[in-house]
Structures are given as C-alpha cells and as structure tokens.
C-alpha cells in the first residue's frame, strides 16, 4: 500500500474512534440533562399534554432500554440525521451545513494568519534577541495572550468601525448592495478583516512565543555553526536551517490547539454576527436549543480532525525526514 493511502486510512480509523466517543458523549449528555427528553421536546414543540408526551416517547423510542436507544441514535447519525430543531423547524444537519462554509473560511484564514505571523514575528524576535524589536514583540505577544478574544473584537470594532469608520462592524457582506465579481469579493474581504484579525491575534501570540524559544534553541545547534563555517549567507542560514527546524514544534502545537481555535470562532462570530457555526451556537444557547448545540459539538469535532490531518501533512512537507505513518 502506498504510504499516503496508509496514512489517510489510519487517520480515518482514528477519526471514526474520536467521533464515536463524541457521539456517545452527546447521547449521555442528552440523557443526563435535567428533565425527561420527551417533556423537553414537547416543550420545544410548544405542546405539553400527556398524550403528546407519550406519543413522543414511543415515536423516539424513549421507552426502550438505554443501549437500544444508543444504537438508534448512532444509526441516525451514520445516516447524517443529527436531529430536528423545533425552534427553527428544520433538521439540525441542514442548519449546520448551511453555516459550515463561513466558519471554515474564518478559521482557516485566522489559522494561516496566526501561523505565518507568529512564525515571522517569533523568528524576528529570536534574531534580534535582547534588542528593542525583541522586547516589543515579546510584550505585545504577552498582552495578546492574556486578552479575552471577544473583548479584542469589541475594541477593534470601537476603533476601526465606530471611530474611524474604515471597516464594517458586522455581517458577511453589505446587505442589498448588489455587488458582483471583484466588488463582491472586496466587500466580503472587508467584512472578514476584523473577525480574522481578532481570532488570529491570540494564536499568533501563542505561536510567536513558541517560535522565539524554538528558534533560539535551534540557532545554538552545531549544524547552524557548520553552515556558518561553510560560508553560507546569513539569509540562507536563517531560512534553510533555522526556520525549517524551528517551525516543527510549532506545527505540533498548532495541530493540538486546532480545537481551541474553532472554539474561539464561536466567540468571534457572535461578536461580529458572522453567519457561521459560532453564531448558530450563540442563538442556540439563547434559545436553549440542545439539538443544535450537540450538532455543533459533533461538527466542530469533525473540523478539528480535518485540521489535525492538515497540520500533519504540512509537517511532512517541511520535514522530509518524517514519513507519513501513524
């Protein structure tokens, strides 16, 4: 079997395992929730007489033993049925699919920004260790690392939208503007700018701090001395020897933190009314729409796994010594 196929297969097995546990966790959460699911559903549907509750109980198999119910639940999910939102009168899977693209665009852009920015700034700080550039980068990273992400969003809105009027404060595009082509793209881009910066800033701080430490460590290693002794230019030493080796631990951490990045998008999206999963979560929290919340948990877990595979592939791209295996 070619190694790439093997890698993807092993990842698939792992993904199925993780998702299996997420599904079981979701199932347990529904059943551990205070109140009987049938009464909750009846309440959500807007009717609560005993006959209707009993009907729901048989309809959803709530009178069956727990393991049978788990089986039914898993069966539904395998078929792509994530439940029904009575609040929105639509299947949860439809709601999630509709919101997924916006979240993917937001988190991916923020991820790239954080990674590129963090690696560049961290390297810059390490190359100027002890000088003012290093101190400035370190202080800014320390501050960004301690700031609540939603508050950064609000303050950016205050400065760039309310006071300066440069960028739109919320939404995905100007409603009713009727742009098309390049204008539409520019419009969406200007709406994306603040959310992406907000979400990316925190992780950029994390990666900057790590990259600085990592680059300092690599720079003191023997192979860097050898490269210097060979008469390599400083630029070559930095890009080919230091950068390439120092970036590896950052990628590992970036993969592990993918879940937090996606969690952060919930906050950012609710600040900027970005029409993604986060906004959906915020509304579901307000309406106590559990089916949607559990669906979001499932879908974001899928996203995290996708991010993990992505970072693993990046790893292989940067370090050819690493082979794609489990």
């Amino acid at each position: 079997m070619p190694p790439m196929l093997q890698f993807l297969l092993s990842r698939l097995v792992k993904a199925v395992l993780v998702l299996g546990v997420v599904v079981i966790l979701n199932f347990l959460l529904i059943h551990a929730a205070p109140g009987d699911p049938a009464t909750v559903m009846a309440g959500e549907a807007g009717a609560a007489d005993q006959a209707f509750v009993d009907q729901l109980r048989t309809q959803f198999g709530l009178d069956q033993p727990l393991y049978v119910q788990l089986g039914t639940y898993v069966g539904h999910i395998v078929q792509g049925d994530l439940g029904f939102s009575f609040r929105q009168q639509r299947p949860v899977a439809d709601l999630l699919l509709e919101r997924l693209p916006a979240t993917v665009v937001l988190t991916l852009s923020a991820f790239v920004l954080a990674l590129v920015g963090g690696v560049a700034l961290g390297l810059l700080a390490a190359l100027n260790v002890g000088k003012w550039a290093d101190s400035a980068i370190t202080v800014v990273a320390l501050l960004s690392y301690a700031t609540p992400i939603y508050w950064v969003g609000l303050m950016l809105v205050l400065v760039f939208s309310v006071n300066l009027g440069w960028l739109p404060a919320f939404g995905y595009e100007t409603i009713g503007a009727g742009y098309s082509g390049v204008e539409k793209l520019a419009d969406i881009g200007s709406h994306m700018f603040l959310p992406v910066v907000t979400l990316g800033l925190f992780y950029m701080a994390v990666y900057t701090r790590m990259m600085r430490a990592s680059a300092l460590e690599v720079a003191s290693m023997d192979f860097v001395k050898t490269a210097r002794a060979k008469g390599q230019t400083e630029w070559n030493i930095v890009t080919r020897h230091v950068l390439r080796n120092a970036i590896l631990p950052i990628l590992t951490v970036a993969g592990i933190q993918a879940g937090q990045l996606i969690g952060g998008s919930i906050l950012v999206e609710s600040v900027f009314a970005w029409p993604g999963l986060g906004r959906l979560t915020f509304d579901a929290v307000l309406q106590r729409d559990y089916q949607v919340l559990l669906g979001v948990f499932f879908v974001t877990s899928v996203l995290v796994i996708a991010f993990n595979i992505l970072t693993d592939l990046l790893y292989v791209l940067i370090d050819p010594r690493v082979e794609i295996t489990t």
């Binding site: 546990v21 966790l25 879940g259 937090q260 969690g263 559990y290 948990f297 974001t300 996203l303 993990n308």
Partner: peptide, 20 residues
C-alpha cells in the same frame, strides 16, 4: 488525547447550557 482533541470551548458551552 481524546479530551485534548475535542473542541474544548464547545464542550464547555454544551455542558453548561444543558445543566443550566
């Protein structure tokens, strides 16, 4: 590892929302 993989904040939101 599993607990490190699943999206932290989403789980916190789900748990707190469900258990009030």
């Amino acid at each position: 590892e599993l607990f490190q993989t699943i999206p932290n904040f989403v789980l916190v939101v789900v748990i707190v929302a469900i258990f009030t």
